[in-house]
Structure formats: structure tokens, C-alpha cells
């Protein structure tokens, strides 16, 4: 039994389309609607008009893009430019405030290392727990465990509780499980940065194999090496808007030039 939704039947069908997508995130706290203001609202409706209008931040502003089978896109931009918000929207966690978002294909995401990892359980047990969380078929879990154990090179440490692991070790484990079973769409946010060089190379190879099987990759990172290793295209975000979509070499050159100019000044 598979619990993965809306599997695309063929590679051609696999797609992500965004039309004029706007995402507003509410900020609660000041002026926010709480139980008191809801209860008092009928009495003070005339005087206190602002009650209930909580401030918002526009995380994504008029995003248009379409991705198809074979696209491997790197998201770049400053902190707070909207990279994570866009990834969460693509994953179906956030819904657009306005605009249209269409997706065909199964999605897997690696946004943080905390999800589902049980610190008291051993590495082996966590591979099993995570595999079930991601909805991998039960019959395949034994093979997956062997595969992940071989990939992450943690050896004896896999028998230890995960609370004794370093960040990098956790990443190896999580990354191994996320990429253990094919998915049409893979979304990754900024986590590969904590790994060492040898793992990056290994991850790179695995990701290449994985993306060969899966159709679309969207990855957010500040690391040029990661971006050029994993992606063909670079999508630059600023203040929730897409400001450029370029092949990856150009992007690296641009940044190089920009850095040189900066040095010259």
C-alpha cells in the first residue's frame, strides 16, 4: 500500500505551475485577533475598527513559473527573500493567498533535520521510523535500511541513540532516507551546508542518481558549490519576487563578477 498522493502517470504529466501566486503570512501578536477581541468585538465594533486586522507579511509576491520533468532549479536570494516560503508552498504546506498553483506528481521534502527523528531511538530505528513517515512501502524497508546504512557510512554509530549524533551525522541519516526511494518532485532547503566535503561529493552523486529517477528538483542554498553541483538553473528571489531565472554557469559568473567589482571598489 502506498500513501503517496497524486502520482503522475508519466513523465510528461509531471509538472509544477504557478500563476500570479501571492502568499501572505499573518503576524500574530500586536493587534492580533485573540479570544478577547472576538468576544468584545460586537460591543466595540464602531470605535475599535482595527480589531481583527492582524498585520501580514507578503512572503511571495506575484510568482509565475512552471517546471517540468528534468528541471533542477536552485533558489538563491538573501535571508527572508522567500526561498523557504516558496518551497513550503510547492510542498503543499502553505496555500497561495491568491493565484493558481497546480502540481502533478509525488513530492518529498527535506526542510529540516528535526522532523520525525526520535532522539532516544538508534540510527537503525530512525531509518525505519522515517521510512514509514515518508510513506515508503513496508516491504522495502529492509532494503532501504541496508541502502541508507551503506550510503551514510555511520557504521557502528547506527546502533547508538540519535541524540549522541552530531548535526552532520543527522544530516547523513536524514538525507540518506529522503533519497532512498524515488519521488517525482524533491524539495530541499538549505540543510546540505552542515556536511563535510567528502559527504558533499557523495551526496552529489546520490542526488544525481536520484534526480535521474525523479523528475523535478528544487533546492535552496547559499552555497555556490552545492548549487552548481546539483542544479542546471538558478532562480533568484528578492522580496518575494522572482528577479531572474538563468542557467547555472551564468549565475556563478555573475556572482564572481559582482565579487570582483566589490573588491575593486
Amino acid at each position: 500500500m502506498s500513501i503517496l498522493p497524486d502520482k503522475a502517470t508519466s513523465d510528461e504529466e509531471l509538472s509544477i505551475e504557478l500563476e500570479d501566486v501571492v502568499l501572505d503570512l499573518p503576524i500574530f501578536g500586536r493587534n492580533a485577533k485573540n479570544l478577547r477581541s472576538v468576544l468584545l468585538n460586537p460591543f466595540f465594533r464602531k470605535t475599535d475598527h482595527a480589531v481583527g486586522d492582524s498585520p501580514i507579511v507578503r512572503a511571495l509576491d506575484g510568482i509565475n513559473m512552471s517546471l517540468k520533468h528534468g528541471d533542477r532549479v536552485g533558489l538563491v536570494g538573501h535571508n527572508g527573500a522567500g526561498k523557504s516560503s516558496l518551497l513550503r508552498l510547492l510542498a503543499g504546506i502553505y496555500w497561495p493567498t491568491s493565484g493558481i498553483y497546480r502540481k502533478r506528481g509525488t513530492t518529498r521534502c527535506l526542510f529540516g533535520l528535526g522532523r520525525g527523528v526520535e532522539p532516544e531511538a538508534s540510527g537503525f530505528e530512525n531509518i525505519e521510523i522515517l521510512s514509514q513517515l515518508f510513506g515508503y512501502p513496508r516491504s522495502a524497508i529492509k532494503d532501504i535500511t541496508e541502502d541508507v546504512a551503506e550510503f551514510c557510512e555511520l557504521g557502528d554509530a547506527l546502533a547508538r541513540p540519535v541524540r549522541t549524533y552530531s548535526e552532520g551525522m543527522r544530516l547523513r541519516l536524514c538525507f540518506g532516507v529522503v533519497t532512498a526511494w524515488p519521488s517525482d518532485i524533491l524539495l530541499i532547503d538549505e540543510v546540505i551546508g552542515v556536511s563535510d566535503r567528502s559527504f558533499k561529493e557523495k551526496a552529489n552523486q546520490r542526488m544525481k542518481d536520484f534526480t535521474r529517477q525523479s523528475g523535478i528538483l528544487v533546492l535552496a542554498s547559499h552555497d555556490e558549490q552545492i548549487l552548481s553541483g546539483f542544479c542546471h538553473e538558478c532562480l533568484r528571489l528578492d522580496h518575494g519576487k522572482i528577479i531572474s531565472r538563468t542557467p547555472i554557469e551564468d549565475e556563478v559568473d555573475q556572482e564572481g563578477e559582482a565579487a570582483q567589482e566589490g573588491d575593486a571598489e
Binding site: A91, G92, I93, C109, F111, G112, G114, R115, G116, L133
Partner: peptide, 9 residues
Amino acid sequence: GQAIRDGDQ
């Protein structure tokens, strides 16, 4: 909350 924002929605 963290797990939900990381994909357990």
C-alpha cells in the same frame, strides 16, 4: 509546529 512546517501537514 516545526514538523508541520517541515512536511507533516
